[in-house]
Amino acid sequence: PPKQPGVGEHPLQFNYTLWYSRRSPGKQNMSQSYDQNLKKVGTFASVEQFWNHYCHIARPCELSGHSDFHMFKDGIRPMWEDDANKLGGKWIIRLKKGLASRCWENIILAMLGEQFMVGEEICGAVISIRYQEDILSLWNRTSNDQQTTSRIRDTLRRVLNLPPNTIMEYKTHNDSLKDNSS
């Protein structure tokens, strides 16, 4: 059964699941091994349940190697093949080292608090820790809905409070699949 808020807790509009993945050096980056590397950290239905998980896990900046946190609506796996994602896409923001923890917190709080105002469009967010830079992405259901994707971009700019020259790139999951980049 879906998780429920506890007595006196503040319910979320949607339940969310937090996932963690880490690529072992030397292994092939195939879809199957990606799926096998995904570890569920927990699911939460209230603001308080979220903090109870969040306060006990490492911050993105503390992770080493090739690691990702994924926070998706409960029932959506953080993979492009999921029904909710297959016609979707993502905004991609490349971050200088040192910004990942703050930006990740800002993006997930905006998601939990329903700050994007795009109905059911948001699927989840990912922070990818890499060697040279970190990559933040926000996934939505419908890549060809330009009004929605523009609205998401504008909210992202506001909640992330990034320098004005930060480049934001939108990519459909279909294109990512074709160029095998993510």
Binding site: G6, G8, E9, H10, P11, L12, Q13, V47, E48, W51, N52, C55, N106, L109, A110, L112, G113, E114, Q115, V159
Partner: peptide, 21 residues
């Protein structure tokens, strides 16, 4: 329908609530 919306300040406040262990 009605949406459950929380701003950042409110969510941060809940972090310090007795319900958050």
């Amino acid at each position: 329908g009605t949406r459950i919306i929380y701003d950042r300040a409110f969510l941060m406040q809940c972090r310090n609530s007795p319900l958050t262990k």
